[in-house]
């Protein structure tokens, strides 16, 4: 391979590069934040992309050494509220004042914390009963709605809600226990 000289240092990263790199680093938390306020996965995806574009465009506004996730989540929150205004009649999103209220008490996890929780989640998933796990996978891997899962599995929609809710309660308990055990 005819590689030339290594010129890693020839292009110093710009401020925007720095911001983009931070976005990459923290994107799971930013995505999680958006999904919390906008449970529809495909719309959350759209808002995530809009957030990325806005952050790239407004990179200069970000001051180094300040809390990036908080800054990014502020932008994301605006994007969610815009989405909320576009779809005022839906009961699937919280009202704008409630969104504002819950955001006040939002404190993002650190990457380490998150890593631990994800690892625990993976172990806990294995402990779910097969039918529960299947419902969870259809919901989260394949982004099916409860009604679609009901159709696929031959259950009623209400029982899908119940199964998913129980699964979350069980997983939350399991993760807490797991993390305590790890210390």
């Amino acid at each position: 391979m005819l590689f030339g000289a290594n010129d890693l240092n020839s292009t110093a990263p710009t401020h925007r590069d720095h911001v983009n790199a931070l976005f990459v680093l923290h994107s799971p938390r930013i995505r999680g934040f958006i999904l919390s306020l906008l449970p529809n996965m495909s719309r959350a995806d759209d808002v995530m992309q809009e957030t990325f574009l806005t952050i790239t465009a407004k990179a200069e506004d970000y001051e180094r050494e300040t809390n990036f996730v908080a800054w990014a989540c502020t932008i994301a929150r605006y994007k969610v509220l815009e989405e909320c205004n576009r779809n005022q009649k839906t009961s699937l999103m919280l009202s704008p004042d409630v969104i504002e209220a819950v955001c006040v008490s939002h404190s993002p996890m650190t990457p380490d914390e998150e890593e631990g929780r994800l690892a625990a989640l993976k172990d806990c998933m294995d402990a779910l009963a097969p039918h529960t796990r299947r419902a969870v996978e259809l919901r989260y891997s394949r982004a099916h709605s409860a009604a679609e899962i009901a159709k696929l599995l031959g259950w009623s929609t209400d029982s899908v809600y119940v199964v998913l809710s129980r699964a979350r309660t069980a997983l939350q308990k399991c993760i807490t226990t797991h993390l305590k055990a790890v210390g």
């Binding site: 999904l35 929780r117 299947r134 996978e137 891997s141 939350q172």
Partner: peptide, 29 residues
């Protein structure tokens, strides 16, 4: 509101895990 975030973060983690496990055959299907 605190409980909201606990549940919502679990939801986000489940989605992240679900997307990463993408392509793995859904059980029994």
């Amino acid at each position: 509101r605190e409980f909201f975030w606990q549940r919502a973060e679990l939801n986000a983690h489940l989605r992240q895990h679900g997307q990463e496990a993408w392509g793995v055959k859904v059980l029994g299907q």
